[in-house]
Structure formats: structure tokens, C-alpha cells
Design a protein around this nucleic acid. Structure first.
Lengths: 144, 144
DNA sequence: ATATAAAAAGACCTATATGTCTTTTTATAA
DNA sequence: TTATAAAAAGACATATAGGTCTTTTTATAT
């Protein structure tokens, strides 16, 4: 469903958020180790997330990744949009270039239902809500 | 959601089915033109579908693609499985290697709901049901 | 000031998906 | 039996996603 890059992005942000709650600013090497992702590539992904202003970073000694204090919850949708692109939730599931209610593909309505339930889910779930689930030991990030 | 290759595969099979109902056995060039897909690549995709026994083909004059007369309806799931691979509907949405009810990722249940609604849909919809929708002019394949 | 530890940046590499071109095989019609 | 029309096959080509390596920049501690 989602690309690996997006999966790394979400897991990385969740890990950063959890560490921030402990007062830590993890670097990409630590993050990669903890979320089980390729180190350098994770650095690149985090660069992109920082450029998209979904996370902040500091260079130099004591630097790392962190969220600015009063951060609005970050929905998974925002992350998906930043990594996969804006059209992710609007393409025709049947591959037609033009497909709408007037000129629908034969999957139109049924696909819309599935897509919308996915869309709803990624708008409800946030980096923060996932992190809380992990902190309550109701779920795992694979390590920690 | 689905790769382009799978989209071509589904559209091609629907077109073949519709033409078969008219007593025709279209070739890949005609199919590609009608479903708006790259010609040679569509030929390759159809080769794979034929190898997977989702469709039959005849070489030589008068040849082309067709379904054997008493064909069980072909679900979209079968096509997806043949093109995308068996694991398409079983991977963790969060990217964890091991993720199950005992050791769930923080998206486990919510993702399962979305994935299962997609799974249900592709098991209900068949090449035949999509073709019928198009024949009744309730939907379009882009041409025809 | 200097050393150090961190992210940023840029050049590259690899794998996979997607797509094209050419040749071979095969069924049918003339 | 030969010409023809079709799929099959194989060798390429291109684009994108995923990944690595090296160098540069920058903040901090000494």
C-alpha cells in the first residue's frame, strides 16, 4: 500500500516523538537502528521531512531531530502527502486518466469506499497517537 | 494502490471478455489500443496472464486472446495475486517484519480494517461483472 | 581558536517496474 | 508448400524507488 520510504518516515517520526518526551533529540543513526531501517537512507528521508517542516533538526554537537514544542498533531496523511505526493488519494483505481461520477470506471464506487476508509484512517491517526499507543505498551515499534 | 501492470491486466481481460461475447478474439495490438496501454508491454503482461492460466491464447492466423468457454468467474484478486504476488494482502501496513495480534504495530487493527475491505472488494468483483457493467453502459473502459 | 559531533548535501550505486525492439515460433489460408 | 498473421521470446532501454559513500556545513564543548 505505502512505499517503504513512507513507512520509514512514519516510524522515524514516532521514534523521535517518543524520545523527545524523554528529553532526547535522537540522530539519524540511532533512529535507523531503532526502527530497523537503512542508516544513510533514513538520513535522507529525515532531510526531506525537515524540508517539509514536519520535523525540526539541529546540526552540530548535541544536535538531532525534534519537534518544536507546541506541535499540532501530525496526521499520517501529512506524512504520506509529503513523501508519496498530493495525488496519492485521488487517482482512479482502475488506471483511467479521466474517471468521475459522470464517466466512471467499473470500479468507481467500490474503490471510492475503500480509498475513503483508508483516507479517513490516515487522517485520524497521528504520530502522537501512535507514539502513545507504544508508550502504553499496546503496540511496538519493533525495538524499544 | 495497484501497479500500472495490474491495471493493464484487469482492463485487458475485461476487454477480451467483452470481445469474446461478440465472438471475437482480439490480439494484443488491438487490446492495447482499446484500453490505452503500451502495445508491446501489454503483450508481455498478457503472456504472463496466459502462463498463469487466467486467459488462453492462440498463435497464428486468426489467433488472439480468449477465455475457454466454461470459465469460472475471474476475481480481481486472482489477477492481483498473479501480477503483484501472493503477499500483497498480508504485509504489515507499518512496514514491520513481524506484526501480528500478539505483537501488533500501532496501526494493526485500523489497517486490517482497510485492507480487509479492499480484499473483500477484489474478491467480489470479477472480470465478468466489470464487463457486464460496461456492456450495460453503466461504466466505461475508456474506449468502446 | 580548535576539536568534535552532529545534520546537510551531492555524487553515486542497485533493484524493480515499466516499456521497446527484434527475432522466433506456430496456426491458418491460399 | 508457401505466405501470412498472430503470439512468444529474448535482449534491450528508461524511469523510479530505494540505498550508499564521501564531503561540507554548523553548533557546541574544550
Amino acid at each position: 500500500m505505502l512505499g517503504k520510504t513512507t513507512e520509514y518516515a512514519i516510524r522515524a517520526l514516532v521514534y523521535i516523538y517518543i524520545q523527545n518526551m524523554e528529553g532526547e533529540r535522537p540522530g539519524f543513526k540511532e533512529i535507523a537502528k531503532m526502527i530497523d531501517s537503512p542508516e544513510q537512507f533514513t538520513g535522507k528521508v529525515l532531510q526531506n521531512l525537515a524540508r517539509a517542516e514536519l520535523v525540526s533538526s539541529m546540526k552540530g554537537r548535541g544536535g538531532g531531530f525534534f519537534f518544536n514544542e507546541p506541535t499540532n498533531p501530525i496526521t499520517l496523511f501529512k506524512v504520506i502527502e509529503a513523501i508519496e505526493g498530493k495525488e496519492y488519494f485521488s487517482k482512479c483505481g482502475f488506471g483511467l486518466k479521466r474517471c468521475d461520477a459522470n464517466n466512471p470506471c467499473p470500479l468507481h464506487d467500490d474503490y471510492a469506499y475503500v480509498r475513503d476508509s483508508f483516507f479517513k484512517m490516515v487522517n485520524e491517526k497521528t504520530i502522537q497517537s501512535l507514539a502513545n499507543k507504544i508508550n502504553k505498551r499496546e503496540a511496538t515499534l519493533n525495538r524499544l
